[in-house]
Each structure stands twice: as structure tokens, then as C-alpha cells.
Amino acid sequence: MLRRIIAHIRKELLLLVRDRAGLALLYVMPIVLVSIMAVVQDAPFRDFADKQVKVLFRDLDGGVVGEKVRAGMDIAGSFTITDAGTLSEEEIKEEVRKGHHQVAVIVPAGASKVLLDRSAHAMDGLFGQITGDSVAPIQPDSAFVRMIVDPTVKHAFRELSRGALIRILAGLSSEQLLVDMHARMEAITGDTLEPLKLMAPFIGVDQRLAAGETSGVLIASDSTQHNVPAWTIFAMFFTVVMLAGNMVKERNSGCMARLLTMPGGVAERILGRAVAYLFICVTQLGVLLAMGHWVLPVWGLPRIGARPCEGPCTFAAGGGVH
């Protein structure tokens, strides 16, 4: 029985090897697909993986607000900041529209004055209730830091930029309120008091990775990690085309009728085919992982698996190990 199964396996492999169109379908097409798709998707994956938003920064204020917003965005680590120099708002918009920058941040002139005025007004209101002094009824002007966004930028990136700006401006306002409060309290008490400092939030955020943290490695997705496993599975479906084609040929040629009059049952024929096509699938996997490991990096794409033995592990996990 084993000899007959081996005979079926050998026959199937010989038929596949002799079928050039079939070989192209099984091996060349997936290689081409992986190459094209990995190259095409590389840029978007890099954007997403790096999480760096390109920001064009214009400070019309020249005071503490411009300085602190710039410093706060630098510290956030999610932004690559370029100074807009003396560009006008229209020129800045054009730069963003052309895709040179994803976001532009313009700190308006007088923003620092608005910050100081509003803080002082708030303190007047608060301490006026204690000292009995009257408070100016007119509210000081408002100021808005302008954010200009490339319409093609993902919503997540917009919100990342907007959230960072809100956080910086809120911190700046709180800090100014504390400074003013400290000055007023010294004035009331006539003593020199310890400066009030902006504290860390009482309740913080503890972020953890769902996977990879315990092993000390970072799991990340890139175009190679995404495309090689995906197209490998897709390529395996093409074996069905070959299998069905050979079965139809076998039936039409009369070979099936001949096989039915020979020793060995349907189970042997199916097993022989299954083993042959399993071998094809394994070699497809090997070829495409080799592409991901050795060939795609030559074109500047990420490598699949840090070492060759990690390829299959990466495939099984559906993610990349760097």
C-alpha cells in the first residue's frame, strides 16, 4: 500500500513539475504579488509604525505660549517639528496641502498676553471674594492655537496632534494660574511662600502591551510581516486550481477508469495527492519566507524574522518579531 501511495505522490509531483503554467501560478505569481504589495504598502505601514506626525510650526506669539507649545510637542516624541520661519498662513496651508507636512500649528500673536490676562482675571474673581475687591466685568480676549490638517491624514493622527496640543495648553493655563495664585497669596499674607508646583496627575495611566512585553521584544506590524503570510496563504489556494485541473484531465483521459481497475482504493489516491500538494504548500511557504527574509530587505523593506528560524514562528503568530 505504501508503495502505491508513493507512486501516486511521485506521479503528481512529476505532473506538476512538467506543467510550466502551473508552476508559474504556484510560485512565480505569489512572489510577484508579495513583492508588489510589500513595496506598495511599505510607506503607509512605516507611517503607522513610526507614529511620527510631521508638523510645520509657526510662532507668531514670540512669548511664553509659543515657546512652551513648541517645547511640549518636542517632549511628546510623536512629532517631527519643522519651523515655518516667516511663512504666511496661506503659504503654510499650501505646504500642508502638498503633503510636505501632515499638520501645521500656528501660535497666534498675543497668545501669551491672553494667557496672562485670563489668569489674572480668574485670580481677581477668586481673591476678590476674599478681599472684597470688585472684579472687572469685561472678560479678556480669547486666543486659539490654529491647527491646519492635511485632509488625507488618518483620523488617529489628527486626534493625536489635537490631543497633544490640548494637553500642552491645559498644562500651560494651570501653571499660569498657580503662579498667579502664589503671587496673590504672598501679597495677602505678606510672607514669602513656597512656590506652588504643577504636580503629576493624581490618577495616572499605566499602558501595557497585550503581547511581547514578557519576552522583552516589541511586536510591530510592517508591510513584510503583513504581506508575506497573507499572500502565502492566498498562494496555497492556487493548489486547488492545479488539483482540480489534474483531476478533470485524469477523468477525461480515461486514466481514472484505468485506475479504478487497478489495486488500491480511493483513499490511496487521495492520500497520494494530499501529500504531494502538502509538499507544494510547504515549498511555497519556504520560498515566500525566504523572499521576506533575504530578498525584500535588499529593496529596503523590513525583514521577516530576525533570524531564519523565526520565520515560521512569525507566520504562526501573524506578527513580526524584531
Binding site: R4, I6, K11, L15, D19, N252, G254, C255, G264
Partner: peptide, 30 residues
Amino acid sequence: HRIIGYVPQDIALYEALTARENLTFFGELL
């Protein structure tokens, strides 16, 4: 099927294989 031999009306051979490969395959089944 060990006792009989059958020659179908159609040319029941694998045309992509050589004559010897056909004979080897069917011979091993037999």
C-alpha cells in the same frame, strides 16, 4: 483487479509523463 488487465477506449495515459514514467507508475500500482 490483481487478476485482470483493462485497456480503456480512451488513451488512458498521462501525456505529460514519458512512456517509461507511465509504465513505472501503473506497474507500481499493479
